[in-house]
Nucleic acid binder design. Structure first.
Lengths: 119, 119
DNA sequence: ATGAACTATAAACCTAGGTTTATAGCAACA
DNA sequence: TGTTGCTATAAACCTAGGTTTATAGTTCAT
């Protein structure tokens, strides 16, 4: 697949795909170059990018993620495990906060929130 | 309470509290001024700011939130309801994405993710 | 074989969300 | 009463995450 195909399948602008690559977010295994130096992506890149989008959307940074998927660094299994467990913990925290936030929003709606009493 | 107290209780830098205020994120009901023009916060600001932190941390923008809590705009109940229901839907989407993301991270850990096969 | 549509890189640009700096007015205790 | 520590504002500054622009090479349908 060429970059335009990936862009269409993932809804990510071409400029963003190139940007992520510069940030080392795209493992080499998903990405080769052809004779003209055009990017050639494997099919699996699509699912990978969907995961990346999900994680970015809930507050993870490009740097965190690129560290996690980096091959160059060749993190030991133990270190990687540590990092991933940490991430999962963070996600669980976010989920807890979201539950509270939903309550907050419902309170806003019901006019029960403190700052609403004046209205 | 003065700004330093709020800062300590919420773990938000004083500069951030002033910044949020400039962005209309702090309803007047939580915030008055004393004779010297010093900010005086009500106790409830702390819980309010915890909710704000939670929502910001999962991808909501200051502008979205300030619109939601704004008094000036005086949104009709129906409109506010619409906005809040929309937000809650977004939160539920985020929660779904998080579930998928946890699976992804576990796959990374198990070495089952595609981009790991080369290692 | 040529023009429209694709690909590439590098560098400049933009926005959101803060933080820092400069300058000045109160406070509170020794 | 001074000096240490709070408070204030305005403006400059910073970083992450992209996007746009300028310039140039490739491909494909007619």
């Amino acid at each position: 697949m060429k970059i335009n195909d990936v862009s269409k399948l993932t809804d990510l602008p071409i400029s963003t795909l190139r940007f992520y690559e510069r940030k080392n977010l795209i493992p080499d295994i998903f990405l080769q170059r052809d004779a003209n130096n055009y990017r050639v992506y494997s099919e699996e890149i699509v699912e990978f990018l969907e995961d990346v989008k999900a994680l970015l959307s809930v507050g993870f940074s490009i740097e965190e993620l690129s560290l996690l998927v980096s091959q160059e660094l060749n993190l030991s299994y133990e270190l990687k495990k540590q990092v991933v467990e940490q991430k999962i913990k963070e996600i669980e925290d976010v989920q807890k906060r979201l539950k509270k936030s939903k309550k907050f929003l419902h309170a806003v709606l019901e006019g029960k929130a403190n700052f609403q009493t004046k209205c």
